[in-house]
């Protein structure tokens, strides 16, 4: 469905050469363009206005936090004498509370902003990715002027990941509570959260408490890259019938 001909990839590299973009194509033919921060807006404008691309719609924009990418909680390379508990006792995503959250690590390219574009004219999709610098804060130019639909998506990415969009007309929190502290979708934010809200009978108003529930993730995170999971034949995905 998202089949892109090699020509689009070539065309992108040709037209966007001055913007130092890099393109990659995944096995199902979806094309991703990684754009440097300083060219983020100009690349977007070109993709929208150039007739050969005509990406009229910004379908989706989201933040990604790559902290802990590829980390597992259970070594699977070799057999050990330890039991299941080695997986349960780990401190992976969702298994810590506010007091024990990991130090915010300074990983290069920790945050990314991913945009899905759609060209109705050419019936094509394209994914843009940008790694904003971490210092002093994850900051990149806003795309609201290019595609108005980016407005709330950028607010969401700001709210959940703390990515700041320069030039956004109204960068407020959108999904979290009024007066919320922190950016909950960052990998170093506890899954159980930090505060809980309840109605206090004595004070006769809603009060904030520290969260009481324990972190409880039962299935350990396992990373496997054995040959079993490498599927050589990609062409059979989609509509074709599977032989029984």
């Amino acid at each position: 469905m998202n089949e892109t001909t090699p020509s689009l990839e070539q065309l992108l590299q040709e037209v966007l050469a001055e913007h130092k973009v890099s393109t990659s194509c995944n096995p199902i033919g979806q094309l991703t363009v990684t754009v440097p921060v300083q060219h983020w807006q100009s690349v977007a404008l070109k993709l929208r206005d150039d007739e050969r691309f005509a990406f009229a719609q910004l379908i989706d924009l989201c933040g990604v936090d790559y902290l802990g990418y590829g980390n597992d909680e259970w070594e699977t390379e070799q057999a050990t004498s330890e039991g299941y508990s080695r997986g349960v006792d780990a401190l992976g995503p969702g298994r810590f509370d506010w007091a024990h959250r990991p130090e915010a690590a300074e990983v290069e390219n920790r945050f990314a902003v991913v945009v899905q574009l759609l060209s109705l004219q050419h019936n094509r999709r394209l994914r843009l990715r940008c790694f904003p610098p971490l210092q002093p804060m994850p900051l990149l130019p806003s795309l609201v002027e290019v595609w108005n639909s980016a407005n709330w998506y950028e607010r969401e990415a700001f709210d959940l990941f703390g990515i700041v969009f320069e030039g956004h007309p109204d960068l407020r929190r959108i999904l979290t509570d009024y007066g919320f502290v922190g950016h909950p979708f960052r990998k170093d934010f506890p899954l159980i959260g930090n505060v809980t809200v309840r109605y206090d009978e004595e004070q006769r108003r809603v009060v904030y408490d520290t969260v009481e529930i324990e972190p409880r993730v039962t299935v350990p995170r396992v990373v496997r890259r054995d040959s079993r999971y490498v599927q050589p034949d990609r062409s059979s995905s989609g509509n074709q019938e599977q032989e029984a």
Binding site: D60, C62, V64, G70, V114, Q116, V223, Y229
Partner: peptide, 15 residues
Amino acid sequence: CYLVSDASNKPFRVH
């Protein structure tokens, strides 16, 4: 559904 997987049994990011 935008899905990122890092070869594990849980999604790395779903949007």
